[in-house]
Amino acid sequence: MNLRLKIWLGAAAAVAVLGVASAASIDLGRIFDVGRDLATAATGLDEKEEIAVGREIAGRVLGAAPLVADAELQSYVNRVGRWVAQQAERPDLPWRFGVIDSPGINAFAAPGGYVLITRGLYEILDNEAQLAGVLGHEIGHIVRRHHITVMQKSAAVSAGARLAQRDNRAQFINNLIGTGAEVFARGLDKSAEYEADRIGIVLAARAGYSPYGLIEVLHKLAARGASDASLALLFKTHPQPGERLSQLGDALTPRMGQFPAGREPGIRQVSADVPPPAAQQPVPAQGARALQQDEGAAPAVRPGQKGGIGVDPGGILRGIFGR
């Protein structure tokens, strides 16, 4: 290597180090000035802001799919969910749980303690241990701040966003949230999903349930396969359920001995008075999407009608995992 290149590289390295150091001191200064905690250092938001972000996103999901009109069911899910959430490291968040009126199979964790589960997912659950496992997975996302971290990574990198972060918190938070509830359309890293699975198992066990409810639910999803329309978004935004089972198996097998057997209480059914979930109204198609829709104009089953002859959407694996 010639001398000139060496000098040049050395200078570049020095600039890089200085740059990092000055960026770090600015960040630390800002954080200590306003007395923010360690979590703030990681996400750039304090807990109040995190809750405000989550409330906005959860409210938007509710705008797209309202709560199932069954007050008893909603209260029940809140009691189960809060009990599971009490077993994690952020018990004092304003935990809110809701069953939303969508026939798809999915669940959403908005930052700060908001957990929404679709009626489609709720109705394939056989017992409360399975519900606890699913809610535990979502609670895991919240206590480890998975979504807020992803939102920051994608929003806060632009220079404009950095300025807004210093000068105008409201504007900064709006940038962070983006349009609608897009963070749920994008999904998280696979590693965050695997981590939430491991947490879901443990939180269910701590709450006194069978730890294996989440595993049973993942088996149900795997057995439905990728072509099941009710799983379309979940499959786009999560690792395949079979892969999640393998990852959980690797984590669990050496630790099987530490888990109590736990209980599998019955689950509350959705009230018979509540009509079946309406399919979401397709959004207006544009451009290429419109073409695809014309091409695929298959007759749709009426909303709420069961999937077809011999298909029992709620019954898969019920023989094995059911009550």
Binding site: S102, G104, A229, G307
Partner: peptide
């Protein structure tokens, strides 16, 4: 797409 599915359509992107 949204209409070629087997009938059940949930929340999508």
């Amino acid at each position: 797409n949204v209409t070629s599915t087997i009938g059940i359509r949930g929340l999508e992107e």
